[in-house]
Design a protein around this nucleic acid. Structure first.
Lengths: 252, 252
DNA sequence: CGAGCACTTGATCGGGTTCAAGACCGGTGG
DNA sequence: CCACCGGTCTTGAACCCGATCAAGTGCTCG
């Protein structure tokens, strides 16, 4: 799942990346990529892959480092290969809405836009493939099959966003937290991390900002769930004891 | 703006539509379509258009009639040509979240999905082009240019959804209402309906369900805006007197 | 061992909801 | 032309869920 990254230098500046020769070898990397089948790249055959990875650059981020920020010129799209990222929007006065958490296999980049409409930064050490928009656009334009795949990803993303609107607009704090735990567990399962203990790499503040609540309400609600024997709070996550109940709260 | 619809029979039943012969001539309709340049069809040339309208069926709905409902098998995608529709999701207990309002030119249909994830029904008398998913999918697959256009529409939709998440999760009632008015005005302007009086065809309940508020709060907030001379409430809409102020409230 | 940060817990507050009338408005029939 | 009716919208009063304010706890790391 760590996408076989074996580069040695940890900190790359934007500048360094730009000046690297196209000849720098990372051939064979994509074919060994653990998340390929989960990502948009799953639609590419061996031939296309070779060309695709030629326009990619690896990016590595320590926790809290930014992949990109809202308002910047959107010069790249990204494909997460390892770690967890938080995607969020800020209001001028600092209020924050986390619009999603990105996991390995997730594609970040709404393409017709000139600037990033949200910010993304690492929660856990992140690795990602970075593609210059021009090269990326040129690449997909001659591959309808790939375009179709990207379309599917965008549609799924939109469906999740609509689901989240329902949650933000019409659910109680209790339902929000339960729905978050159930949904997050499903996403972890989807990438192969299916354990009884649900790992929560993001902070309480991140969860609160994702659910439109305060950190205190999230904390209190989790504590109450624990008192009610629905789960156990453990370091770095929760262990769900009564999934059916959680799913019922999250229902619809 | 009424998309050049000149049909005489006002009420169409689902059944009537289904039994119309494929030979029924609506050639030349697309080329005369007033919203074509605004819609996904704007990416099609004359040749493609002829073939495209061959797979389309016209649908006409009276207010409150359903275009499709959440949970139904998603057998069609739609392209709105006239009227206004509300898109919404329901919780089992009846709580409703309006996830958007569709205007002429809007494309409805998240395609890889087997069932509709939300419901859509008419607010004002709606006309739409209906495409069977199979034929539609087959059509777009050989037209990368068209696919790209659909992708752009989906991306824009996703951006709006993310904006709405910020609104639902982190804004006050006052900000929500102001942002709604400003945003709705911009959308009306985009389709050519740019007047000082913003028409609000949807009910207060629809607005409330869109903003994650109650009808009373929406009503009170509008009344207060009127007292504060920001706008005047008129039948079927509002007249914005102090746009800068409304935009400041909606800011970011 | 102590400083800093994330999280939890308690007490109080308030924005928005809920409950309950009342006003308005378009349509309908006398 | 106007009385009546049903639905939508507005307005008022009380309440409550989640926010805010304020400690307190516990964990990690130097």
């Amino acid at each position: 799942m760590t996408a076989g990254c074996n580069c040695r230098s940890v900190e790359w500046t934007e500048n360094m990346i730009r000046t690297i020769s196209p000849l720098r070898a990372n051939f064979g990397r994509c074919t060994a990529c653990a998340v390929r089948s989960l990502s948009i790249c799953g639609a590419l055959d061996e031939t296309d892959l070779v060309e695709f990875e030629r326009i990619a650059r690896q990016v590595h981020l320590a926790p809290s480092e930014a992949l990109f920020s809202a308002g910047q010129v959107a010069s790249s799209v990204h494909n997460l290969t390892a770690g967890v990222a938080r995607l969020y929007k800020l209001l001028p006065d600092g209020r924050r809405q986390v619009i999603g958490f990105a996991l390995p296999g997730d594609f970040l980049g709404t393409m017709p836009s000139i600037r990033y409409s949200y910010s993304a930064d690492a929660i856990k050490r992140v690795s990602a493939c970075r593609f210059p928009v021009d090269a990326f656009k040129h690449f997909i334009e001659q591959r309808p099959h790939f375009l179709l795949r990207i379309n599917e990803f965008a549609s799924r993303e939109l469906m999740l966003a609509q689901q989240q609107m329902l949650l933000l607009g019409r659910r109680t704090a209790e339902e929000k937290v339960a729905a978050f735990l159930v949904g997050w567990r499903a996403r972890l399962a989807h990438i192969g991390d299916e354990r009884q203990t649900v790992s929560l790499p993001m902070s309480r503040q991140d969860i609160a900002d994702y659910l439109g609540l305060t950190i205190e309400t999230v904390s209190r609600t989790l504590t109450r769930f624990e008192r009610e024997k629905m789960l156990v709070i453990v370091s770095g996550g929760v262990r769900l004891l009564d999934c059916p109940r959680a799913e019922a709260m999250a229902a619809a």
